[in-house]
């Protein structure tokens, strides 16, 4: 696995590459070895809409200098998301989020791998929504299912997306066990 930093910024936490998937209808950013690259960003939700052919999450990411860059993160089609129970109000504007993104060739655009929606109330659990590259009976999905309770809001029989509740202690444990930014949703954590 190759690991590299996209930029020296606090906002783009990390980027690295994993095995590529050849059949998705977007243009993945590949590294020199032809493997797909991922980034983890922290930011504030500008808008979230489940639309076809790709749901859209736009997150404002602010760097150390105070400059804000919007990121476009795409999801599955609205028809499928709705079938699984996703709604437009699952993620609200101004929500603070940490997002693992499968990068496209455009900077600040990609597909959603995992979305951690931080709670307004520090006592409440965060919601971890996982999607691209994790679906089905995968090691990452099994890892999360073994450690975290479900949100109970998605029909996970389709095996495409899932929602977990993560309280502060569980998040700390995951971060210790699986190193790297959102290492717990990566196939090969650092």
């Amino acid at each position: 696995m190759t690991t590299f930093r996209l930029r020296s910024s606090l906002t783009v936490l990390a980027a690295w590459s994993l095995g590529a998937s050849a059949h998705h209808a977007f243009d993945p950013l590949l590294d020199a070895e032809g493997e797909q690259t991922f980034a983890v960003i922290d930011g504030s939700v500008r808008v979230f809409r489940i639309v076809n052919p790709h749901g859209a999450l736009i997150v404002n990411v602010t760097d150390e200098s105070g400059a804000t860059t919007p990121w476009l993160i795409e999801l599955n089609p609205a028809t499928q998301l709705a079938r699984e129970g996703w709604t437009n109000d699952m993620v609200d504007a101004e929500d603070r989020v940490t997002v693992a993104v499968a990068l496209s060739r455009q900077h600040n655009r990609g597909r959603l791998r995992a979305l951690l929606v931080h709670p307004d109330d520090a006592e409440a659990p965060a919601r971890l929504l996982v999607s691209y590259g994790i679906r089905g009976d995968t090691p990452v999905m099994r890892r999360l299912q073994e450690r975290l309770p479900g949100c109970g809001i998605l029909n996970e029989e389709y095996g495409r997306t899932a929602c977990f509740l993560v309280d502060a202690a569980a998040l700390r444990d995951l971060e210790q066990e699986f190193a790297g930014p959102m290492g717990y949703v990566m196939d090969n954590p650092e």
């Binding site: 977007f26 639309v51 076809n52 790709h54 476009l72 795409e74 028809t79 060739r105 455009q106 655009r109």
Partner: peptide
């Protein structure tokens, strides 16, 4: 199916 074009990927 209602389609929303999110813009060119190129």
């Amino acid at each position: 199916w209602e389609c929303v074009d999110l813009g060119s990927r190129e």
